[in-house]
Design a protein around this nucleic acid. Sequence first.
DNA 1: CAAGAGATCATCT
DNA 2: GATGATCTCTTGA
Length: 179
Amino acid sequence: MKLKRSFYLQPTLKVAQEILGKFLVHRIGKRKITGKIIETEAYVGPKDKASHASRGRTARTELMFGQGGRAYVYLIYGMYYCFNVVTEKKDYPAAVLIRAVMAENAHSPVQVNGPGKLCQYFKIDKKLNGVSLTGNVLWIEERGERKRGQGQGRIIRSKRIGIDYAGECKNKLWRFYLK
DNA sequence: CAAGAGATCATCT
DNA sequence: GATGATCTCTTGA
């Protein structure tokens, strides 16, 4: 069950929480790489100093200003890629950073910690920047494993990470993860 | 176990 | 020319 575009047009903080427990899928030819999303961070609005979009609209951040439902991939510290999901409507800069997943290719699940490792595992690179998540290469899907009550109670809120330069904004509880 | 430095480049000033 | 939405390894207590 691939998520539809309308899912990504919801408020970013809601998307960041609801996306937990869903599965990220990257198709490469016949092979599929999948993993359960267990940690996210929200980057919302032009006033969020932690967001790339806070310094205005540029060639790089243009994607964040677009309509939700696309991938925003960029290189950080010269070595690692970060994978974001663009959310909300056109002209409002917002995105959800995927920080960690449970990989299920191995027999026993392996935790993939952090955006850098995540992108290595999923073979995500610059070429996927701007790819639509409603296409057939990279998408997020839901599986029938939500029984009842759905894991809302297992979601932990926390401060965001690695953004000390963002001043006041760094104290916002915009990071979400599953226990 | 906690803390710190290095690797390395696209993007912005 | 400076710097960051990171990770891993090394150092020191």
